[in-house]
Design a protein around this nucleic acid. Structure first.
Lengths: 338, 338
DNA sequence: CTGAAAGCGCTTACAG
DNA sequence: CTGAAAGCGCTTACAG
């Protein structure tokens, strides 16, 4: 009678046990599919549970077993589709493996990063995946590691440290892109966008290596850093073009910078591919249908997410295994802009 | 000596109590900042906790208090920047309010939606925010509600139901866009993209109302449904142009469809704004710097996320308040494509 | 202002 | 194959 009307107190295994005429230990065993319990007993228990609308209280179980099925994932810029695609890959892998994801967005704030990390620790997270905020001191990673929670860093490698990492070979990627432009005959190649940090350093290194290898002098005037978003891409392209109208090629810090650059080109009545050679980095989904479709360095963001999750999962299953590093091998994908 | 070397067992309030020479009740009280404890005692406890490196075990506390600070947020398509921006808004509000977000991505799969919802229930989530997968039966929402977990639906309104909702006025938004095109003199206006479902129906209704109001006959041939992503936008624009080379204007299901359409136009050597009038929907960040910048219907995705979170938060604080509905008021933002 | 005791809902040895 | 008991780490009345 009181089936759905009265909110009633929560149903626990004790209630199920009473209903099925067994002890709560038996109920617990049945719930986790133990082979110790006889078939008909198990069946009876399951029926009782269903009848009472029993819901497993995972937190209680975890408290006792000191386990957890929640994994913290910390992203800093979801507005960048690269990270969105990455997150989707991470999330799928983690859920597949039976985990639930505690997601946090830092928006590049050190304070928020600190706060959410603490919070995940209190939650007793089974693992933490972090893309460190810009300027995170390397020592901070040590602190997190000292918590003894399986931990993996992704995308931003804070220098040679003793932690698991998944990212991409930034230097090689930009080297490929720059070389492609140089091979096409360009002697002046710009570099657009990017904020100070490891990733920019790595990408610039690839840029310089390519120049050197082709015997082209490095001209610092041609590298225009800018916030790596569309606005920054637009601005940096405008800056480049105003100062060096003769430059006809550039590689971008990432795809969204390239999209902004495409827009700046359009404003000037120029079309990438015909009037200017432009290459992005990441190969986000959008780059297939930008106007025009973008030539870019493919690091398979979605797969990178999955691999990053694998790195953590492996650490969880294998706490004492050697440090792992996964570096996505970049591949140039030629479309219309270069 | 064993400071950082031995992993050691977890420090609990009992250890802190021993260290500070008080009972564990006192420690518990101090931790939650109770005014009951004298200042110096509290200080002593805090020092002891710091010294031992005590970490609050939130799950244990929650078990006892039957509380939870995790809120489930279910998204179906993070690849669409609209949802990414929405999620960022939701997450910020929730974290600000002291919650942690359990994020799940359904990728439009009913099975996954079912699974993650169950999982969140087991986690004893303090609330659930759901953007229902396409074709979710309306009765399913009733089921979720029967769990007695504060619950809010966002973006996709599954028809008149008794639940909290946050979304946008789709009909009005598309009405505004279509009217703008009609006012510019176009008598043939296409409608591009969208998958079957409430949202498409609402947007199409706005389209038809605008036509009728201007005395323009509705031509079903001009509405080209397609998966609402860039590929779909590209395809539907091509379909439209092949069949009706005379059509010179279209409103899109959403911004990413418009981006795809922009790309299709570019391939044909046409430029939106000059050769074709195009309007998007959402006003995602990208639309400011598409090529060319997109005229679109602004529903402030980020703010919509925050408001959706507010709706849930309010339900949590006010379990018996009346049902809430938030509808973002759309505004046409004129840029270069129309 | 502080302590002893009970209990949140589960799991895990240990008996039998 | 199943049950009685202890305990995970906390909080919350209840005494004093």
């Amino acid at each position: 009678m009181n089936d759905s009307t009265i909110p009633s107190r929560t149903i626990t295994i004790v209630d199920v046990a009473a209903e099925a005429n067994v002890s709560k230990s038996t109920v617990s065993l049945v719930l986790k599919g133990s082979p110790l319990i006889r078939g008909d007993t198990a069946e009876r228990v399951r029926e009782a549970a269903a009848k009472l609308g029993y819901v497993y209280n995972r937190r209680a179980g975890e408290l006792r077993g000191n386990a957890s099925n929640a994994i913290g994932v910390i992203i800093n810029d979801l507005m960048n589709p690269f990270f969105a695609e990455l997150l989707v890959g991470i999330e799928r892998k983690l859920v597949e493996a039976g985990y639930v994801v505690l997601m946090a967005h830092t928006n590049e704030s050190v304070e928020i990063q600190q706060k959410v990390l603490m919070s995940m620790r209190e939650q007793n997270a089974a693992g933490i995946m972090l893309c460190p905020v810009l300027n995170t001191p390397r020592a901070f990673l040590k602190t997190v590691q000292s918590w003894n929670i399986p931990f993996a860093v992704f995308v931003r490698n804070l220098g040679p440290g003793d932690y698991d990492f998944a990212g991409s070979d930034n230097e090689l990627g930009v080297f490929l892109a720059t070389t492609h432009l140089l091979d096409a005959g360009h002697r002046q190649v710009g570099f657009l966008g990017g904020h100070k940090g490891v990733v920019l350093n790595q990408r610039l290194a690839g840029y310089k290596t390519a120049l050197k290898k082709k015997g082209v002098a490095y001209d610092p005037d041609l590298v225009i850093p800018a916030t790596p978003n569309r606005q920054g891409g637009c601005d940096s392209m405008n800056t480049l073009l105003s100062a060096h109208a003769d430059v006809k090629a550039a590689v971008c810090y990432n795809d969204i910078v390239a999209f902004g650059a495409l827009s700046a080109l359009g404003e000037r009545g120029m079309r990438a591919g015909a009037d200017f050679a432009l290459i992005g980095f990441d190969n986000v989904l959008d780059s297939q249908h930008s106007n025009p479709p973008l030539t870019t360095v493919d690091i398979r963001p979605n797969e990178l997410g999955e691999r990053a999750a694998d790195v953590l999962l492996n650490r969880i299953q294998n706490p004492d295994s050697a440090r792992q590093t996964y570096l996505a091998q970049p591949q140039l994908v030629l479309r219309q802009t270069a």
